[in-house]
């Protein structure tokens, strides 16, 4: 899996299919602070990812 982190860095992760929420937690990120795009589309974090999926973890902002 190719993972784009909130700071723009990229990681290649080899792991079995898992819930996106778990993947995010394992990367040390609070799932409440991010949304995740799987292969270019934002998906609920109870969806799973693995194999050659590309994940983009976006730390969305709330200020105005």
């Amino acid at each position: 899996m190719l993972i784009s982190m909130p700071d723009g860095s990229r990681r290649v992760l080899s792991r079995s299919e898992a819930r996106i929420e778990e993947i995010v937690k394992d990367l040390g990120i609070n799932p409440e602070e991010v949304i995740v795009a799987k292969n270019g589309r934002i998906v609920p974090d109870d969806e799973t990812a693995g194999g050659s999926d590309q994940l983009k973890i976006v730390r969305f902002v709330h200020g105005g």
């Binding site: 602070e33 949304i35 609920p44 709330h62 105005g64």
Partner: peptide, 13 residues
């Protein structure tokens, strides 16, 4: 799009 609000914090701007 955003089913959950992020934790409140003062945003830098």
């Amino acid at each position: 799009l955003f089913p959950r609000a992020p934790p409140p914090a003062t945003a830098p701007a």
